[in-house]
Amino acid sequence: MKKIEAWISQTNTDYKEERQSCAIFRDQFEGFYSLDILSTSYFVVTDDIPKLDFPELRQAGFGSFIDMSVSGITYNDTYYVERKAAKELRLHFHELVHVLQWRLLTPQGFINRYIQEIQTYGYENAPLEKMAYTLDAHYLAKGQPLNVEQFVREHL
């Protein structure tokens, strides 16, 4: 786990100059995310999403997950989005759910739980992913605003 945490920390440091504050979404996500959450969350637009790829993870059966094509991925308070998907509000909304999960579970807690859920349920049925997909679908459907932080806290 320490190796994963170190890699994530180094990756976020490497991209620090390219990070943008999620506060730019304050109008779009009003009623869902507080300005405090948005101001302390960041995203990086990139052509190449950084992904963990350690032999130990592949040996543990995560090869297909590592090789899966994704438009976004979250590491602690920063998420990375593909340039071609950078204007998709639903993607930003989804990744911000993961930022909250990281905060509430702590980095080590999130990593442990996420790995366990992927192993047990697979990506599509992992509870942390299902939560993010449920919330981003609610947002996309123009559902009533709800406090996402409170929702995540109550459903972890």
Rank of each mutant, 00 (worst) to 15 (best):
M1F: 13
M1E: 05
K2H: 06
W7S: 01
I8S: 01
S9Q: 11
Q10G: 04
Q10I: 02
T11V: 06
D14N: 13
D14C: 02
E18Q: 11
R19I: 00
Q20A: 07
S21Q: 00
S21V: 01
A23E: 04
I24G: 10
D27R: 12
Q28H: 09
E30K: 13
F32P: 02
Y33C: 02
S34G: 05
L35A: 12
D36R: 06
L38H: 03
T40D: 09
Y42R: 00
F43L: 05
V44S: 03
I49S: 04
P50C: 04
L52A: 07
L52N: 03
F54R: 00
E56H: 06
Q59M: 08
A60E: 06
F62N: 00
F62R: 00
F62Q: 01
G63N: 05
F65A: 01
I66D: 01
D67C: 04
S69W: 11
S69K: 13
S71N: 11
I73N: 03
T74F: 08
Y75H: 12
Y75F: 11
Y79L: 09
Y79S: 01
V81T: 05
V81F: 08
E82I: 10
R83D: 06
R83W: 01
K84W: 11
A85D: 12
A86K: 08
E88N: 13
E88I: 15
R90E: 15
L91V: 09
F93T: 04
F93A: 03
F93H: 04
E95F: 02
L96M: 12
V97F: 07
V97A: 06
V97L: 12
V99A: 03
V99I: 14
W102A: 14
R103D: 15
L105N: 08
T106S: 14
Q108Y: 09
G109H: 09
F110L: 09
F110A: 03
I111A: 10
R113D: 03
Y114N: 04
Q116Y: 12
I118N: 00
I118P: 02
I118A: 02
T120Y: 04
T120N: 07
T120D: 10
Y121I: 04
Y123Q: 09
Y123P: 10
E124Y: 13
E124A: 14
M131C: 14
M131W: 11
A132N: 06
L135P: 04
L135D: 09
D136E: 15
A137C: 07
A137I: 09
H138T: 07
Y139V: 01
Y139F: 14
L140K: 12
L140G: 04
A141R: 04
G143Q: 02
G143L: 04
Q144M: 08
Q144F: 12
P145G: 02
N147G: 10
N147A: 11
V148H: 08
V148Q: 05
V148G: 08
V148L: 03
Q150P: 10
Q150E: 11
F151S: 14
V152Q: 09
V152W: 15
E154R: 15
L156T: 05
